[in-house]
Design a protein around this nucleic acid. Sequence first.
DNA 1: GACTAACGTTTTTTT
DNA 2: AACGTTAGTC
Length: 668
Amino acid sequence: MANAFSFDSLNQAQREAVGALDGPVMILAGAGTGKTRTVTCRIAHMLEKRIPASEILAVTFTNKAASEMRERIGGMVSKKAAAAMTVCTFHSLCVRLLRGGIDRLGYKKNFSICSHSDQVGMMKQLLVRKGGSDEKVKPDEVLSAISKAKNKGIEPGDLEDDYFANLAVAYQNELRAQNAVDFDDLLLLGEKILRENPDVRDMFRQQYKRVTVDEFQDTNSLQMQLVQQLVGEPYHVCVVGDDDQSIYGWRGAEVANILQFEKFFPNPKIIRLEENYRSTHAVLHTANSLIKHNVGRREKILRSTRGNGDPVRIVAMPGDNEEAEFIAEEIMAEKGAIGRQWEDFAVLFRTNGQSRKLELAFRERKIPYRMVGAQSFYDRREVRDILAYAQLLVSPDADVPLLRILNAPNRGIGQSTAVLATEWSREHHESVWQALCDPEFTDTLGPKARTSVQEFIALIAGAKNRIDLEKQNPADVLDALIKEMEYLPWIERACKTDSERQQRGEGIFSVVDSLRKHVEKGKNLQSFLDDSALASDREDDDLEKKQGATLITLHASKGLEFPIVFLVGLEEGFLPHSRSIVEGTKDEERRLLYVGITRAQDQLTMTYCSKRLKWGQETGCQPSSFIGELDDEHLNHTTYDDILGAAPSTDELDNFFGGLKGLLGDVE
DNA sequence: GACTAACGTTTTTTT
DNA sequence: AACGTTAGTC
């Protein structure tokens, strides 16, 4: 552990942050200022100072961030010490807490965690059951209102809209009846246990004497309260973040946590990291000039440790076709001219819909590219289905997963039977599964439906017995179950393409496979379901594993960096998004653009179009009001026509773009 | 109960 | 344009 890290390799501010181990500390880490390095060094410093690893808690926002942090610290100190620390997300910390003590709140310890799609399923049911509303209300709308209420500490019944309040109460009762919690409940109940039980709270405070919270600008007020419960005197807490990069306000993040940190912990030491190692001066100057238009921020001026670099280009485009072509052509030319890798290029956009034209242009030119984000692995139908079966094998009384797969694959238990069973279960205050098992209920069904139900019950009960009584490997049982009911052929029938068929098959396989690995580690089915519910895992989230230029949303780009960045669609209505103007969140849109700009290391090009295809319809566009806020000093305003001349041939294009670098770029 | 056709919607995304 | 949802038909 001797050479864990060296103070010499850190700058003044970083050194101060790494050295300040005691008391409340807030590190304001601007983009590209070596935040991760500082935080990991600080924790390594703790270990070097003989603070036991077991007393260290680091909370992150995603599981990926948690494992990366553990790995980096492991590289600096011993693997053993890294393994002994607790590095996890707020949610998984609460799961641990609740598996131990949720019975104090009247839940059973084997509670299940509702994923988003579970919540939607439940809310859809409630909307049907409650009816009553003249307008059609979307499940997501209600759920987000409930979520915001929970995060603000408002009781479901006290929601402003009566209809929503009614739904919220019903939703909460439903969760309760199924012994289930949603993501917000994890935090809510975790905080409640700590607050109401001094013995539990003291135990945690004894256990975790040093708490670090990463990405602090993304915490909501409930998470702040949780931190306050976790951290007792003498408040050895360190929060790290950048209010200028707070872009998740729409899902409850409270910048106030950073802006008013002094209110939560007394006399914090506040350290600013402003020395930027990532970008050229031109890029940073432009970023600084934009973000200073936001009011009520912790002012930070990023300083470049590098040279001026090329000016930042703002290019006016006739339309989105030209925009895509321009970028694709320029990437081809640049790559050849200065020997770049495809991976050095990134195109950033506000909405996923903007990627289509770009993909097309890339494919035409055989430019390899990687798309980040899009569809979550856990939202894939076959994955959700198989997880629903897995959950039934733990608790068949969970209504949402049961109803989800009751007729998937088709087994002759359709909507009408499902409705009858649900109604019966409500009247008799029991679960849908219990209703299906009840001969009194099945006798009310027609002979065909009755047989189908009985076969279904036998199928699930049989599999459950093989796990519970015969102690067979749950992964084997699940695998056999899937084959027995011919799930794969059923889902394949609905596929249009071969690649889709293959994808479905792989989805099913990987769920079973990851369950098997879980079991091999000695964990049970329940903990597998917990992990799956809390896992963010995008299909191939590891950007590094994919090859090619990057196409990515501004949100997903946070934390990444690229030598050459194109930021497209700087149009009023897109960036800032029209919705933000209605909702009065233009500041956050400005931060979003700030995040985008600060992703660039060497070269940045921002584009806007005069017209753009939107929802299959051509719409006129105005330049973003943000463009006018940028300082001109390192800007180069130009147009598509200026660069291209009048409609050159492809050959001319190639030649032209080949020489473009020489014409435009002030190469250092 | 299963399949098809018309319809409406469309920011960002994690746990 | 493309997707999911819903209503209508066999």
